[in-house]
């Protein structure tokens, strides 16, 4: 789960199907899909968005959507 990730930790996305359709589409547009490797860069306070990095590009997504992404640590 993303929620247990600390900044700097890397993981691999296993399941995106619980994330809302629109967010899934946008992540796909940005090349992030099941099997992508991601790294948590920073976490905003008060339940704010998190910044993740994948293939050298940084993306901001909301915490509540991030927790629906299933990730395993690598």
């Amino acid at each position: 789960m993303f929620s247990s990730f600390k900044p700097g930790e890397r993981g691999k996305i296993v399941d995106l199907s619980h994330v809302s359709h629109l967010v899934q589409r946008r992540l796909l547009d940005l090349g992030i899909t099941e099997g992508s490797e991601v790294c948590v860069k920073c976490v905003m306070p008060f339940g704010g968005p998190i910044m993740i990095e994948s293939c050298g590009q940084c993306i901001g997504i909301r915490r509540k959507e991030a927790v629906q992404i299933e990730v395993v640590k690598v």
Partner: peptide, 11 residues
């Protein structure tokens, strides 16, 4: 209800 926030952070 719907809201979408996915943003690209350019270098």
């Amino acid at each position: 209800e719907t809201s979408l926030f996915v943003i690209e952070l350019p270098p």
